[in-house]
Amino acid sequence: MIPLSWYLIAAAALFCIGLFGVLSRKNAVSILMSVELMLNAVNINLVAFWHYHTQLQGTSQIAPQVFVAMVFIVAAAEVAVGLALIISAYRRRETPVVDEMTLLKG
């Protein structure tokens, strides 16, 4: 009996919090955590829509479930590689601070 809008607004808020984290945190691990927040926000949306459409159609909808599963998989892969990168970069440059990694400087 909860309006769909509540979930959507909560998810949007969580997404924006995550976005802020990605843009402003110095530590690479922190950025990864913020990305996780954004992914979770997306998942909330997907599951809410799954519920809504299941309710409209009467049978469980497969596609949203598959998408949620995909987000889980991608998140897991991303964290694994991301953390490996951070550790590798940390080992070489002695810092996990993204601010100090300025190889792209022109």
Binding site: D99, M101, L104, K105
Partner: peptide, 16 residues
């Protein structure tokens, strides 16, 4: 080039 700080977050902030 002078505007390129090499800071990835700065780029992202501009993009967003």
């Amino acid at each position: 080039r002078s505007k390129q700080s090499g800071r990835i977050q700065q780029y992202m902030v501009i993009a967003i």
